[in-house]
Nucleic acid binder design. Structure first.
Length: 877
RNA sequence: GGGCGCAUAGCUCAGCGGUAGAGCGCUGCCCUUACAAGGCAGAUGUCGGCGGUUCGAACCCGUCUGCGCCCACCA
């Protein structure tokens, strides 16, 4: 805290009995949240007669704690659902967590490693027990963070992807897919992580350019010599052919013959295959069907044997001098041996090429031939694409749908089995005589001698793909499922569009008879640091949201995040900005204090417009415009815009102008003051309700103090009453113009803000006459007493403010400033005049634009007259 | 190799055909009885370069340059 935070005592005429001069989030947030939960505000009733509004949480992994990206996502979902709840929907914000198979298993394995224990030391059962233990701790931490953030989730419905109900859902859909022949088992080349010792799916592989070495090796001798190139020399031990293009004249004579494979004493055939690009390299490719996906396909086409030469740890198993070497050791050993034989004809190093890495542990992926379970995605993906194509599901922002189609329309089959211990066990049993039985959820697994269950578990996305309906009780036909499916909107990051969103679409359509899991997919961006850099632990710029919540309050963190949330775009966030949001919360706090101390009220009907001052009519008119704007932004998921709109309306218009103007009104008292107290109450009441979904805590505290009601959580969402008063809006704009102009003059003249100046206001013939007292108060103007001499005369907006600054005024400074303004006004007049004499413009520009230019011209002319008059009124010197 | 996106004030970003905007930062004055986590006033941009369309372009089209992201089985 700075020295400035030294406070005035919280007593005396400016104190409020309950609200101190500074908002202290820590004092209110925790207890408010617990009260909301206790009162059951966030629970959702499946039997309610209200229309449903459903959003599921993108289930956080139970791998640790939430980061700022979660805080961001939760802020958006919470704002959406809080508004809908206030609008009277039966609102469900479904909480839960994801077991996150491989990620969690890795975390727990790392924990064990610290104790010097491997999972194999524990054995499967004990290890899984250990992971459950971890889940308990980590899960508690996560829900604690969610409470701090203010997430209005239905805690009584919390689910976990591994709980009984969801496991049953997994088994049910597995069985259904199996019976429909959309799940099958096959031996293929898969992405193998030699560290995690499991297969992973295509999207779990991250490609990056690594430096390697491209060696060109001569196979065969003399006439039969063919040069092939590789970055993975060790795989040559498993080569079972060399392939060339069928039309390649260079090799035509060799197709069908056999050549010698160096180091092995084996002879391998030369085959012709369309896949080979004759333009690339030498136009000849070594074929290793067991260790490369392309080669595997070539092998299939030509009936080549699949020769595996590495085990699951990527250690060479092929007999000979290289047996037992790790793949990288083997690589250099083999290159060395080939070089010794004079087989290496070229080496290129470094050779940057794209290499796949395990997204969980960054280990280089080894393509490996393996028996795995697969989902046949073709028919499912077709449906998932069509649902978006025909508009049943909308992707927001829309240009993200291109990415979606690109993926859904070009999908390979999905490898769903994982050689892990943490996850849903594959419900398939193998019999002693090679029987394969898929067991449904209500069936007994086959028992007896020799029957064993498949030891693999399912990809974690298999269960999270069911999340929109499994959390509602599916496969049981529950009331909740009937009420809350499909979900209203899915709010999630564009980074898991493929991992999660596409899978939910496929499974939702499949399991729920063609009903897509949600109406809208609202994609948000990634949280970045204040310089737009990706946040990561290794880069040292990752922020624990709790730290900022402790320092500035949850509302401040939420408001900052919401204010940066442009659809689909990454959101940078810095501590300075959180401070600014904290300041905003404090500003709201103090404005409401002011209102309470001055008797603002929400009691009784709002007085009819005829009984209100222009100031009151102006702010009510603006208030309703803001209600309409905010609604439109919410419906379009424009969180940044709605937050910004509220920020500026509250601070600039309500706090800086309306509250300041109301001080004069309250001082004068009478019927106008009474009406104004009611209007101020109304404005704050509505503004706090509008702000509540984004900054729930401070608004709850203040709104209940203002209204005496139970909670803003269950208050009605404001409606645009339709009231507009453009005349009043123009009138206050004029007032603002005059006040600003005179303030500027005062500042330019170096007058102290508090210094009183004698002045005469000429307001007759303008709409500003009623505001004289307010203007005098805002501008520190005294009545023009005896001996008043107007040394400066400021005509603005039809009014004139004459000031007596005898002996104080700096005539030269003012003359200079006016000259500058005059030049600007004259330039403006010239520009607009030119435009208005442009025939093309007049002929083609729309009326409202022409009208706008006319107004600008008129304004410029008025400014010229005003400034000229001001110049003339300056004392000659 | 394909696809998408971005280049606007010192920083991070809105604006996407009719006078250049916000927050933070910056300058000056002020503890004016809601708030110094504040008030008032102010400065700051050939809207990446070059062409084109248009009465008019930060905004549309083409092109170049520099970034970023996604997808892909180039040995």
């Amino acid at each position: 805290m700075t020295e400035n935070s030294q406070q005035r005592p919280d007593s005396g005429p400016n104190s409020h009995p309950e609200l101190p001069t500074q908002y202290a989030p820590a004092d209110v947030e925790g207890q408010l949240y617990e009260r909301w939960v206790e009162r059951g505000y966030f629970e959702a009733d499946a039997k309610s007669g209200k229309d449903p509004y459903t959003v599921v949480i993108p289930p956080p992994n139970v791998t640790g704690s939430l980061h700022l990206g979660h805080a961001f996502e939760h802020t958006l979902i919470d704002a959406l659902t809080r508004r809908k709840r206030m609008q009277g929907f039966e609102t469900l914000w479904q909480p839960g967590m994801d077991h996150a198979g491989i990620a969690t298993q890795n975390v727990v394995e790392r924990e064990l490693a610290k104790e010097g224990v491997s999972r194999h030391d524990l054995g499967r059962e004990a290890f899984v027990e250990r992971v459950w233990q971890w889940k308990g701790e980590s899960g508690g931490q996560i829900s604690g963070q969610m409470r701090r953030l203010g997430d209005g989730v239905a805690w009584n419905r919390e689910r976990f992807t591994m709980d009984d109900g969801l496991s049953k859902a997994v088994q049910t859909i597995f069985k259904k897919l199996y019976d429909d022949e959309l799940i099958y088992r096959a031996e293929r080349i898969i992405n193998w992580c030699p560290r995690c010792l499991t297969a992973i799916s295509d999207i779990e592989v991250e490609y990056q350019d690594d430096d390697g070495e491209l060696v060109s090796i001569r196979y065969g001798e003399g006439d039969t010599a063919i040069v092939v190139a590789t970055t993975r020399a060790e795989t040559m031990l498993g080569d079972t052919a060399v392939a060339v293009h069928p039309d390649d004249d260079r090799y035509r004579h060799l197709v069908g013959t056999e050549i010698e494979l160096p180091l092995t004493g084996r002879r391998i055939p030369v085959v012709a295959d369309e896949h080979v690009d004759p333009e690339f390299g030498t136009g000849a490719v070594k074929v290793t069907p067991a260790h490369d996906p392309n080669d595997f396909e070539i092998g299939q086409r030509h009936g080549l044997p699949n020769l595996s030469v590495m085990d699951e740890h990527a250690v060479i198993t092929a007999h000979g001098p290289f047996q037992g070497l790790d793949r990288l050791e083997a690589r250099s050993a083999i290159v060395g041996a080939l070089r010794a034989e004079g087989r290496i004809v070229a080496e290129k190093r470094p050779y940057a090429h794209s290499v796949g890495h395990c997204s969980r542990c960054k280990t280089t992926i080894e393509p490996r031939l393996s028996m795995q379970w697969w989902v046949k995605v073709g028919p499912l993906a077709k449906e998932a694409g069509d649902a978006v194509r025909d508009g049943r599901v909308k992707i927001h922002p829309e240009d993200m749908s291109k990415r979606y189609f690109d993926w859904v329309d070009n999908l390979h089959d999905w490898c769903i089995s994982r050689q892990l211990w943490w996850g849903h066990r594959i419900p398939v049993w193998y019999g002693p005589d090679g029987e394969v039985v898929c067991v449904g959820p209500d069936e007994e697994p086959p028992s007896g001698e020799g029957w064993t269950q498949d030891s693999d578990v399912l990809d974690t996305w298999f269960s999270s793909g069911l999340w929109p309906f499994s959390t509602l009780g599916w496969p049981e036909q529950t009331d909740s499922l009937a009420k809350f499916y499909p979900n209203s909107v899915l709010v999630t990051g564009y980074d898991i569009l493929f991992f999660w969103v596409a899978r939910m679409m496929m499974f939702g359509l499949y399991a729920m008879d063609g009903t897509p899991p949600f109406h809208t997919i609202a994609l948000h961006g990634m949280v970045r640091d204040q310089f737009g850099k990706k946040m990561s632990k290794s880069f040292g710029n990752a922020v624990n949201p709790l730290d900022w919540m402790d320092a500035y309050g949850s509302d401040a963190v939420r408001f900052t995040l919401a204010r940066g949330a442009n659809p689909g775009v990454d959101v940078p966030i810095g501590e300075d900005w959180v401070q600014a949001s904290r300041n905003f919360a404090n500003k709201i706090w103090n404005a409401t204090r002011f209102a309470l101390m001055n008797g603002a009220t929400v009691e009784g009907e709002l007085p009819a417009p005829e009984r209100l001052s222009a100031t009151d009519r102006w702010i009510l008119s603006r208030l309703n415009e803001v209600v309409a704007d905010v609604d439109a932004f919410y419906d379009d998921y424009q969180f940044a815009k709605l937050s910004d709109t509220l920020f500026h309306f509250a601070w600039d218009e309500v706090f800086d102008w309306y509250v300041e103007l109301s001080k004069t009104t309250f001082q004068k008292g009478g019927a106008e003051a009474d009406a104004s107290r009611r209007v101020l109450g109304e404005v704050l009441d509505v503004t706090l309700r509008l702000l509540h979904p984004v900054v729930p805590f401070v608004t709850e505290k203040l709104w209940t103090a203002l209204t005496g009601q139970e909670s803003v959580v269950i208050a009605d969402w404001p409606k645009d009453s339709g009231f507009r008063d453009e005349a009043a809006e123009r009138e206050i704009e004029n007032l603002q113009q005059v006040v600003t102009e005179v303030r500027r003059f005062r500042a330019d003249q170096g007058l102290q803000p508090g210094q009183k100046v004698p002045a005469r206001l000429e307001l007759s013939g303008t709409s500003l006459a009623a505001h004289e007292d307010a203007m005098r108060s805002l501008l520190r103007l005294q009545p023009a007493g005896e001996g008043f001499t107007a040394t400066a005369s400021l005509p603005v907006a039809g009014a004139t403010v004459a000031l007596d600054l005898s002996g104080v005024i700096d005539v030269e400074a003012e003359r200079k400033r006016l000259a500058k303004d005059l030049a600007a006004a004259e330039k403006e007049k010239a520009q607009t005049t030119a435009k208005l004499s442009n025939e093309g413009f007049l002929a083609k520009a729309p009326d409202h634009v022409v009208e706008k230019i006319r107004v600008r011209q008129t304004t410029a002319e008025a400014d010229i007259a005003r400034i000229t008059a001001q110049l003339a009124s300056l004392p000659q010197g």
